[in-house]
Design a protein around this nucleic acid. Structure first.
Length: 881
RNA sequence: GGGCGGAUAGCUCAGCUGGUUAGAGCGGCGGCUUUACAAGCCGUAGGUCACAGGUUCGACUCCUGUUCCGCCUACCA
């Protein structure tokens, strides 16, 4: 047999071709208006930080799968793509580059720095988009957006002004999480507590005009330079008498009041607490209660300022700590140092230790927005999948704190607030004002800060569709259908979109939120660069092909927080692709005389009816699985059907008709059904493996321009054929038993055997007589099959028992009698133990009285079958005696 | 401190609202150059379903408790 179709599937040559084909035909472009129902997803915009990782591949594969599925179902689908400017992270990358060039952002200035950022954005964006295309993402590229685009910037200003006018945005001096490295405030969510092995430094504070002293235990001795009090618990007998007195702060010799406050825990440390209102959130609260002075001892970059005293000014905070410890030691004021394990906040973008720091910042009072968000979830306007995320969402929303939105950075949306140099009034408008809204002065200066990146991404579901204009696109696609993203950004992003969507649009931004797990390695450990267990998507696609990668991803997407994606799974994806390729190759090679236009009436045989029935079951379960976001299940079902039903059984069984049949209708029927099922299976699979399915589909004798816009299979009750499935079960059982004997008896496939079957039941006999022989030829070489109501057992034969059937395979001299005995003995044991269980159950009065009739009937049936089998096995075993 | 999830074959996971013999992928072992596929085909071995109770005629499945593992959240210096 000759063919020009390669023996192995070679994805590299195929993927680019079809992606371009799809783009050229504009298949991914959504219509602004359509009679078809809408289905829309906005992409979680990747940060323009360089390139994509496996997490992105996962996220976008799932979105593409859903979009392609819905597109094929006839929906007007919009997958809105784009990228995020990602403020701080991207700036850090640029700053590193500048340092390498021997300069810095301060040196080149704000304007030039921003220019450089835009250049970087163009490069990075291009790389990201091409990677998204490599994995096959069917985004509507004509609508691609970037968070700093003019349109989106207008949306940001509009949203800001709206919130400001409602009084929900305010500015003030508060204690924030300050990153001395990035020199900006960061949000609570960006601070990750990391356990570190620190120390408790026990420091002696002498009481003024007394011989007494207090011992203070602290993990951060350098902050003592900003101490303005010492606090004890009001009921602490050890210290009660000292309250109201004064201690002398070591080194600076400042006088500090001893105060009593409920906050102090008597059992922690020494029970005496140094109070540094400027550098600790709790101390800040104590300070407010007791009207204490607030002394800031740090500069923006984490070095000590002049308030720290001459000895320490300009030192880095950790150098200061070391020096201070030495100085205290030399003055005998450091009593002891104890190991102490405690959690310290680190900035998740740069890993530096966060400093609590008082500074002027802008805030959104999100409490009222959060209440609406909770309401939207409780009333079912928005649902989370998996359901456990709903609770997480509620908990966080209920305890929400004001959102600090100003960042002391340059790359981002500058806050639309202008300060008047004359009357000090604030002007907040969407369009850049040319005069003060209060006194009309032209002496205006815009706020230097930019907004938190999440502020602009929070508007993404509608800013990308043209808001604040009331566009056709918004009317058609807002609220979007589903948001697909990792559970780790539920608070960062999803929650903000929900709040801002409700506020700006009056509706939730999406009806469903599917939160997938994070990609892990084969041992369930999260993939991370520091662990060195990452998989590079580009390399993976080069090596295995995009479809194999996608299949592995969908197959692995389980509803757990971490999902293993081992390399062997991607290999399995490649093998699956190759299997489909070859099955298709085989069918295509057998279509030389096939005329799809033929008027010949097909005449389906048992296997044809069977595969159609099985296909229908697959169609039904896959549609259900996708509808419930059970991605792994969908992939399993299609894999099982394609490989183990279509390839292993159906294709094998029709070989007879394709190769040897002299009945043209029989052959034509096999071709027609095979092509039909292959066509349907490819369409089922297309959302998961778009390239391979398109390549094959284009070669099939089926009508249509592209599988991408063909229809997705729907369940069809008419295809269900329980009788065909039952009959095929009998045939398959017999074939499997024969194969098992061949395997265990080591009979080479080339050896022809004789098969004798005893089938006392007339119906079963009929099935075997009609269908066995023709369907068995592809599976085993035999010279003769004899089916009868009763068969005399040949002298030395291997025996298989299936229900009331006995299959004999005479093996005159080759039969290993001991092996055969062992085989039967094993089967007997299995049958006997199960039979005992069934008998025990049926002997139980309570069972017979209370169990449903259906279950009881099943048990009786099972019992009959087992008894029949046992009896026959025993009979055959006795023949050896 | 509060909350969530997990514990099933050597590894990673399925097993839905309790009901025949607990499955898959990968791996193991044995056999096949069968003309679609060795990235394949056939056969086969592995599990007292973490532990202890309870509900039930019946529990991997439901309930309670215990032990591990992972995660989220929280201001204990």
């Amino acid at each position: 047999m000759t063919t020009d179709i390669p023996k192995n599937y070679l994805p590299q040559e195929i993927e680019k071709k079809w992606y371009q084909f799809w783009l050229d035909r504009d298949y991914f472009h959504a219509k602004d208006r359509s009679n078809n129902p809408p289905f829309s997803i906005v992409i979680p915009p990747p940060n323009i930080t360089g390139s994509l990782h496996t997490g992105h591949a996962l996220d976008n594969t799932l979105q593409d799968t859903l979009i392609r599925w819905k597109r094929m179902q006839g929906y007007n689908t919009l997958w809105m793509p784009g990228t995020d400017h990602a403020g701080i992270v991207t700036e850090l990358i640029m700053e590193r580059a500048l340092v390498e060039e021997g300069t810095s952002r301060q040196e080149i200035g704000r304007e030039k720095f921003i220019d450089r950022m835009w250049q970087w954005k163009d490069e990075s964006r291009g790389k990201i988009i091409s990677q998204l295309q490599e994995i096959g993402s069917s985004c509507d590229w004509e609508r691609e957006r970037f968070t700093l685009d003019a349109g989106l910037s207008k949306a940001v200003r509009t949203a800001f002004v709206k919130l400001y006018d409602r009084g929900l945005i305010y500015r003030g001096d508060y204690m924030v999480n300050w990153c001395p490295n990035c020199q900006t405030a960061v949000s609570d969510l960006e601070v990750v507590p990391i356990e570190i092995e620190g120390n408790f430094y026990h420091i002696k504070y002498n009481v003024k005009n007394s011989d007494e002293f207090l011992v203070i235990a602290t993990t951060r001795p350098e902050t003592m330079l900003g101490d303005t009090a010492v606090a004890v618990h009001p009921e602490d007998e050890r210290y009660k008498h000292l309250v109201g007195q004064t201690v002398i702060l070591p080194i600076l010799e400042r006088e500090l009041p001893i105060i009593a406050d409920q906050y102090v825990d008597m059992d922690t440390g020494t029970g005496a607490l140094k109070v540094t209102p400027a550098h600790d959130l709790n101390d800040y609260e104590i300070g407010k209660r007791h009207d204490l002075e607030t002394i800031n001892i740090f500069d923006d970059n984490g070095t000590l300022n002049e308030n720290a005293g001459k000895e320490y000014v300009s030192l880095d905070r950790f150098d200061c700590r070391s020096k201070l410890i030495k100085d205290l030691q030399s003055q005998q004021l450091l009593l002891k140092v104890v190991d102490h394990l405690h959690a310290v906040g680190h900035h998740d973008r740069c890993d530096q230790i966060i400093e609590p720091y008082i500074s002027p910042q802008w805030y959104v009072d999100v409490k009222p927005l959060a209440e609406r968000a909770i309401e939207a979830s409780k009333t079912g306007q928005i649902t989370f999948i998996p359901d456990r995320e709903t609770k997480r969402f509620h908990q966080w929303m209920e305890d929400i704190l004001p959102w600090s939105i100003s960042r002391q950075r340059w790359w981002g949306h500058r806050i639309p607030i202008w300060y008047c140099g004359d009357c000090q009034a604030l002007t907040c408008t969407v369009d850049t004002p040319d005069q003060c809204s209060d006194c009309n002065s032209k002496n205006l200066k815009q706020d230097e800060d930019v907004l938190d990146t999440w502020f602009s991404s929070g508007l993404w579901p509608f800013s990308t569709m043209g808001w604040p204009e009331n566009t056709e696109l918004l009317k058609t696609f807002y609220p979007t259908s589903v948001l697909v993203t990792g559970w780790d950004i539920l608070f960062f992003w999803v929650s903000r979109m929900i709040m801002l969507g409700l506020e700006c649009m009056g509706h939730v931004p999406f009806n469903q939120v599917y939160l997938h797990g994070l990609v892990a390695d084969e041992h369930g450990k999260k993939m991370s660069k520091s662990r060195g267990n990452t998989i590079d998507p580009v390399e993976t696609i080069d090596k295995y092909g995009a479809d194999a990668f996608r299949f592995a991803i969908v197959y692995s997407t389980i509803p757990l927080p971490y999902m293993p994606l081992p390399e062997y799974q991607i290999e399995a994806g490649r093998r699956f692709a190759n299997k489909i390729w070859n099955a298709s190759r085989f069918l295509l090679m057998n279509l030389e005389d096939y005329d799809p236009e033929s008027s010949v009436e097909i005449n389906p045989q048992l296997v044809d009816k069977w595969i159609c029935s099985r296909f229908d079951t697959a169609v039904q379960s896959i549609n259900e699985a996708f509808g419930q976001f059970r991605f792994s299940d969908a992939a399993h079902i299609i894999y099982e059907f394609m490989w183990h039903e279509f390839c292993d059984w159906y294709v094998e069984m029709i070989k007879q008709r394709l190769y040897y049949s002299d009945d043209p209708v029989a052959k034509y029927t096999a071709q027609t059904v095979a092509i039909d099922i292959l066509d349907g299976t490819l369409r089922l699979l297309h959302p998961i493996m778009p390239f391979l399915t398109e390549e094959i589909w284009q070669q099939l004798p089926v009508k249509g321009e592209s599988i991408t816009i063909s229809s997705y299979p729907e369940p069809n009750q008419d295809s269900k054929d329980a009788e065909a499935e039952m009959k095929m079960r009998v045939i398959m059982d017999v074939i499997e038993e024969i194969r098992s004997i061949r395997g265990e008896m080591n009979i080479p496939p080339s050896t022809e055997i004789e098969i004798l079957i005893q089938a006392p039941n007339a119906d079963t006999r009929q099935i075997l007589e009609t269908h066995l022989e023709e369907n068995m030829r592809s599976f085993t070489k035999f010279m003769k099959v004899a089916i009868a109501e009763y068969q005399e057992k040949p002298k030395s034969a291997a025996t298989a028992i299936i229900d009331d059937l006995i299959v004999y395979i005479p093996l005159s001299d080759v039969l290993d009698i001991d092996e055969e005995k062992k085989r039967l003995q094993k089967k007997l044991e299995k049958t006997r133990s199960e039979l005992e269980n069934v008998e025990k159950t049926l002997a139980n009065k309570n069972f017979v009285e209370r169990a449903p009739k259906q279950v009881i009937d099943q048990k009786y049936e099972r019992k009959t079958k087992l008894e029949s089998e046992q009896e026959k096995i025993l009979l055959n075993l006795h023949m050896f005696d």
